[in-house]
Amino acid sequence: CHSECLGNCSQPDDPTKCVACRNFYLDGRCVETCPPPYYHFQDWRCVNFSFCQDLHHKCKNSRRQGCHQYVIHNNKCIPECPSGYTMNSSNLLCTPCLGPCPKVCHLLEGEKTIDSVTSAQELRGCTVINGSLIINIRGGNNLAAELEANLGLIEEISGYLKIRRSYALVSLSFFRKLRLIRGETLEIGNYSFYALDNQNLRQLWDWSKHNLTITQGKLFFHYNPKLCLSEIHKMEEVSGTKGRQERNDIALKTNGDQASCENELLKFSYIRTSFDKILLRWEPYWPPDFRDLLGFMLFYKEAPYQNVTEFDGQDACGSNSWTVVDIDPPLRSNDPKSQNHPGWLMRGLKPWTQYAIFVKTLVTFSDERRTYGAKSDIIYVQTDATNPSVPLDPISVSNSSSQIILKWKPPSDPNGNITHYLVFWERQAEDSELFELDYCLKGLKLPSRTWSPPFESEDSQKHNQSEYEDSAGECCSCPKTDSQILKELEESSFRKTFEDYLHNVVFVPRKT
């Protein structure tokens, strides 16, 4: 048989008469490798580009789960590009990614509803959504962080984005990388972005840091009482949809009607710091009717980097990364020049730590249904340095008659930039024990000054392991946590139920 035959053949030295091919099969003959313009397919066939392209389009058009959109890589027609490569849609070739590779997620039936953290986790790592997304989240724990972890990498949506009755959302900033909504599939009414009845939605994105392009379709905003109209108009300008909307697409009466839409800028007039305090004062603000001013709200939190936005980490279910302080308005003076500047002394802060701070007014709604208010920009203030805590785990070892090696770990709280350490030492008198000992005694162990690591005695271990207080009263049991108490109650309830079950099964009433 021919060298490319495997198993047997019907005619000697003829690659077209093989029972099976050793390498690849091409047009009725066995070959060692697939010549151009053919590609290896499933490690035994040679196919042309049209064959591989037909497989790709067949799966793409069917949208069946589990099928493969075949691509070409290293002269092979394979189910998908290997790690580190992405497909070129024009020629199906796998090309190296520039940075992290995109991950295209194809949605069944063309859309997916995100109504819980669990459903959001199914899209973790996706960068391109081939379909439409509907966000409908009523509640949950730590929602802002969970949504950002699972949806934060999405850069492109081919269909539309719909935010509907998501009472738990305060902001859409968890879509931190969303840059493009194509609108290839539109919501009824030709809408590519749809926001309806979101009672706590206050911000779409921080438009000073976020760009969003909507290729096709219109915007729809109705019944978002805490979303200011200025935020919607800003989205029109940034996304390129200005002029597409009709009169009733953006409701003037049901958007922002319960919001404090600040239209003035508060400026800080005085800032002073110490290692654990920050004193702030800002310019006074009074609405047209000074009785509408209820006070100020001061927001602050630790910020290692200057990239904080107002609604980071917030949701309507209680999660809030900001510390909020309510401040009463100052006494009002008739003389504008003698107006008191409101302020606040922030206490209990960490030394040498940068804080993000902003302040906003708290006002009631005027009778004319106009909203007044003022808010400052987010500023960054760093507390002063102070003395560091003591170095940890000092170790001293003498390696000769004239040297001592000293080692330690950095302090747990540096409280500033540590530039150097101060080492103090003092000579001590020799131990009298060394002169009084009889060095001729056998088995004498000389006193040693070398360091030995501390260890816990058996008594201390027994005390720590004991669940009861000892007789001397030195140790006591740790208080039980809520989960331990709940577990004990469940076990007790189970024992009672099981005992009742045994009584009912074992003891049967005697027939009379």
Rank of each mutant, 00 (worst) to 15 (best):
T361R: 05
I188C: 04
T323V: 14
K177A: 08
D249F: 11
L294P: 07
Y191M: 05
S192C: 02
S319F: 13
S338M: 11
W205L: 05
K267C: 08
I405M: 01
P287R: 04
A356S: 08
R176A: 05
Y305W: 10
C105N: 01
I214G: 01
L172N: 02
K234W: 08
R247L: 08
A195P: 00
R347E: 11
T127C: 04
K234E: 13
S260P: 09
S158M: 10
F174R: 01
L392R: 14
P288H: 11
L123T: 03
I327A: 07
N198P: 00
K242M: 12
R369Q: 08
L293K: 05
T241L: 14
T323F: 05
N387S: 05
F193G: 00
C228I: 04
G313K: 15
L151I: 06
G139V: 15
L279I: 08
S158Y: 10
Q199A: 06
L294H: 13
Q121T: 08
Y160F: 12
V104L: 07
S239I: 13
N198K: 00
P336Q: 15
A251T: 13
E231V: 07
S239P: 02
K242S: 08
V397S: 14
R244N: 05
K209A: 12
E155S: 06
N141H: 09
T215I: 15
L219I: 14
L227H: 01
T361V: 04
F290S: 12
N198T: 02
L196W: 12
K209Q: 06
K209C: 14
T353K: 09
L186M: 11
P410S: 15
N150H: 12
D289K: 03
Q339S: 08
K360R: 11
P394L: 13
P287V: 10
Y285E: 01
T241R: 12
R244L: 13
D289E: 03
D292G: 06
V238W: 03
Y223N: 07
H106D: 04
L298P: 00
E187K: 14
D328K: 04
R370L: 06
Q121W: 02
I114P: 01
L151R: 00
K253F: 12
N307I: 15
Y300G: 01
S171C: 04
N150I: 13
E310F: 04
K209P: 05
D257G: 12
K162Q: 15
Q354I: 15
K218M: 13
L298W: 01
E237I: 12
L349F: 02
P351R: 06
N340V: 15
N150M: 07
Y191P: 11
H341D: 11
G125K: 08
N387H: 13
S400F: 03
T254W: 04
N334P: 06
I357C: 15
P336M: 02
E246I: 04
V359Y: 03
N340Q: 12
K253W: 14
I404Y: 01
N399G: 08
Q314F: 07
N190M: 14
A195L: 09
R176T: 14
E148Q: 11
D289H: 06
L392K: 03
F193R: 00
G125W: 10
Q199Y: 04
L252I: 09
E368M: 12
S376G: 02
G131N: 03
R291D: 14
G152C: 11
V363G: 15
G373F: 02
F358L: 03
L108H: 11
N136S: 06
D292A: 04
L294K: 10
T213M: 09
E262V: 06
V104P: 06
S158V: 08
E148R: 12
L266V: 03
K103V: 06
A149W: 14
L153D: 03
N141G: 14
D115M: 03
E231H: 12
W344I: 04
N334F: 03
A120F: 06
T185K: 15
S319P: 06
E237G: 05
V324Y: 09
K267T: 11
Q339C: 08
G110C: 10
T241Y: 11
G343V: 01
S274G: 03
T118N: 14
S173W: 08
K234F: 08
R179N: 07
A144P: 08
Q121A: 04
K337R: 06
G373K: 03
L252K: 11
P330S: 07
R291P: 05
R291S: 14
L298T: 02
F296N: 04
Q121H: 14
A374T: 08
R281A: 02
R244Q: 12
S338G: 09
L227E: 00
L252V: 13
D315L: 05
S376W: 00
S333N: 01
S158Q: 09
S333K: 09
L147R: 01
H233P: 03
N307M: 03
D312L: 06
S132Q: 02
F221W: 03
L294C: 05
Y194K: 12
P287I: 08
F193H: 01
S116N: 13
F175I: 13
K242A: 03
Q382E: 10
H341G: 15
A303I: 15
K375L: 14
G189E: 15
P336T: 08
R176Q: 14
I395R: 15
H233I: 13
I154K: 00
R347F: 10
S166P: 02
I278R: 00
N141W: 15
S166V: 11
D367T: 10
G243T: 11
A356I: 09
L201N: 00
F311T: 11
G159L: 01
G348P: 11
Q306R: 12
D289T: 03
E264R: 08
W352S: 11
T215K: 05
K301W: 05
N150Y: 12
L345A: 02
R138V: 13
S239F: 03
L331D: 14
Y194C: 15
Q245H: 05
W282L: 04
K253E: 11
I357V: 12
S173I: 07
L279Q: 03
L227A: 03
L161W: 00
L294T: 10
R281L: 00
T185S: 10
Q199N: 09
E148K: 08
C228F: 08
I154N: 01
I405R: 11
S171R: 07
S173C: 09
L362T: 05
E156G: 04
I378R: 03
Y285S: 05
T383V: 02
L180E: 11
D393L: 08
E122G: 11
E368I: 09
W207C: 03
R247N: 04
G110T: 09
I327Q: 02
K267R: 12
A251D: 02
D197R: 15
I271D: 00
T353I: 15
S319M: 15
F299S: 03
Y285K: 05
F174G: 02
L392C: 08
G131C: 01
S338K: 10
H341P: 12
S239W: 03
L279P: 00
S321Y: 02
D326H: 02
S116Q: 02
R182I: 12
P329F: 02
L201E: 03
K177D: 15
G343S: 07
L201P: 00
Q403C: 13
S333A: 05
D335P: 04
S396P: 15
I114Q: 00
E302T: 07
I250S: 12
I327G: 01
N142T: 15
E156W: 07
P304M: 15
I271A: 02
D249A: 07
R291W: 09
E122I: 03
K407F: 03
R272W: 01
F296T: 00
L392A: 04
T323W: 09
D384F: 02
Q382A: 15
E187P: 12
N141F: 08
T215Q: 10
K267W: 07
I154E: 00
N263M: 03
P351V: 08
T371I: 14
T323D: 07
L298D: 00
S208L: 14
G131V: 00
N334V: 03
F220Q: 03
L151N: 00
S376M: 01
N307F: 10
D206A: 14
K162T: 01
S171V: 02
